[in-house]
Design a protein around this nucleic acid. Structure first.
Lengths: 346, 346
DNA sequence: CTGTTAGCGCTTTCAG
DNA sequence: CTGAAAGCGCTAACAG
């Protein structure tokens, strides 16, 4: 591997001149500039990332903090990873993955003190998040995909749950539904202050109330069986329910079965809309599911870009971006049934 | 941030002694060792990763090469990422993500010449893979998840397609099926020499022949519509088909619909087994799908560990590990129907 | 068992 | 507009 010194000699200039030419840190005459670049080309020179990072105190590496959630990572999380990696690369940064399993903030701190990364993107934020507390107190640059209790002075992006709920509920209202259920993540998630679990439910109830509709909510563990049970509970609580909004992809098959068990057809007798979901999942079922798709790719890119801008910028200007899920109508949502006969199977 | 020099002063020893104490590179008396560690503790010292890497010429960073495949990344790929990240961390390495969109080897080469990473894990291998060619010619350490045409001298892990097909076909044979279809990835993938597309099909045909069974194969673009069409083509080619093995999750709903269209029930009239699939996808459908699940987590961890061992070891001992998919019987596979009436709908 | 010292390859003052 | 030189924080000879 040729070094900068080699390039300098080859071009007949000082080592520092090569450095300046590469970084554009100070004016270089077009002529020497050309000589230097020719030399680089000829030698196949690539600046050494480690040396550059050490000397400049900026590694141009950022980390994605990526919790091995109990909920189980899904396609949305995959898109965060991919989009963050792409955004980083497009901006000349490397992305390292830090899976912060259970870990106490202590371990995270050690990672940051290694001086490897210039900043971190944090995902799966909780209202009270000790990772965020830590980042804040040691004043380490970061951006969040999600929100916590106090987001002042923090770059972050999140799903616009208010807008999403409004769109979804408007869709169902337009079809004549007035009694709508909301099937959330597990109670545990909600109580742990997991952002989507909290905000989606709040917004659901607000929007339903604002429109004079009748809303019922339930938590649900992510499984077929629990989906089945929970939708039955919702229907027990409000027998007039004609639609359910579900933010729990793994519960969907259970819902479909519970509805089929009653001899109902979807969407003739009952409508389902998944929120914060993905097209891939929505198209696995029969019928395909109308979804409000998580803007995962945008969120990942945006958060990453925000972080990098903060890193590059002189002044740290803070921004917040909320992006609604995009409604894609498929086969599972339809006109509210006028009358509905229940044929409980066996 | 305290430096090694600070620790040395604090402990009253030479800087190098601290270095040796940390790396265990040479014997240190228990007493000074203790003093040094106390000093480190007290100062909250963490070795600087960049400096260490620069001086030792070993960054302890590896990269995961991760193509933005046209096939679209799924849960299996997510698990590669997660497991590789975990395996790296457990072994004291960092993992950076390199999405190699434009797979022009040139770009990859530049990345490697930055000296940031000690080695790479490559996934989504094709028979003729220019990334592998490159890695080979410049003698850069790597391990593969998958295989290419010539795997000699390369650490790699892969799915044991032979064993997987044997298990799956045995499962179906045990249920009395003798005419079985295989629904592959898209033809394009096969022709590009994408490992699974090639090997699974080859093994399917081999195993079917070896058992005196009647096998039919078809390529299929990953979508509901194509799944629907393709299974009908399979049934047109062999009307006695009573089961299909599908290695294309997104085609599954199409298959289910095509079967339903004929008025057939699953598994009474027709069986489906997905291979190289995931539980998450298999449980989205009604009925749930019997699958041979991709050992994604193991593959990711193993490949990563192989690479790290190669990096650490004196001698580079090469290994190959093939792991079969694990069969999980669910609702979509059952006894071969004796007789079957086709009621083509509408 | 411990200390001294020469770099690793680059950035960035400080001088022209 | 360009050079010289002092580090960045650490590893690894080389000496004892």
């Amino acid at each position: 591997m040729p070094t900068m010194q080699d390039v300098a000699r080859h071009a007949g200039v000082a080592l520092s001149t090569v450095s300046y030419a590469i970084n554009g840190t100070r004016p270089i005459s077009e002529e020497t500039r050309q000589r230097i670049f020719d030399a680089m080309e000829e030698l196949g020179y690539r600046p050494n990332a480690l040396a550059r990072g050490l000397a400049s105190k900026r590694s141009r590496i950022i980390a994605l903090l990526f919790p091995a959630a109990k909920r189980g990572l899904g396609l949305t999380e995959l898109e965060f990873v991919i989009s963050a990696a792409n955004a980083a690369r497009e901006n000349g940064y490397h992305l390292v993955l830090w899976s912060t399993e259970i870990r106490s903030a202590a371990e995270l701190q050690q990672l940051m003190q290694q001086g490897l990364v210039d900043g971190v993107v944090v995902m799966e934020i909780h209202d009270q998040d000790e990772r965020i507390e830590l980042l804040r107190t040691i004043d380490f640059p970061f951006a969040m995909i999600g929100r916590c209790a106090d987001n002042s002075e923090i770059n972050h992006v999140d799903i616009d749950f208010g807008q999403t709920m409004q769109t979804v509920i408007a869709h169902l209202m337009g079809l004549g539904h007035t009694h709508i259920g909301f099937l959330n993540h597990a109670r545990e998630e909600f109580e742990a202050g997991y952002g989507p679990a909290v905000r989606a439910q709040t917004r659901f109830l607000e929007t339903m109330a604002a429109n004079g509709l009748h809303g019922t909510t339930r938590f649900c563990e992510p499984s077929l069986e629990n989906g089945h049970r929970t939708v039955n509970e919702l229907l027990a609580e409000d027998p007039d329910l004609t639609a359910v909004i579900v933010m729990n992809d793994r519960a969907i098959p259970g819902i479909l079965r519970a509805i089929a068990d009653r001899g109902w057809r979807i969407p003739a007798d009952f409508s389902i809309v998944a929120v914060v979901s993905s097209a891939r999942a929505a198209e696995m079922t029969i019928p395909t599911i109308t979804t409000a798709e998580a803007p995962a790719y945008e969120l990942g890119s945006l958060a990453t870009e925000m972080l990098i801008h903060q890193l590059e910028g002189e002044k740290k200007e803070i921004s917040e971006r909320l992006i609604p899920c995009k409604l894609v109508a498929r086969e599972s949502s339809g006109q509210c049934p006028g009358e509905r006969v229940e044929l409980q199977k066996n």
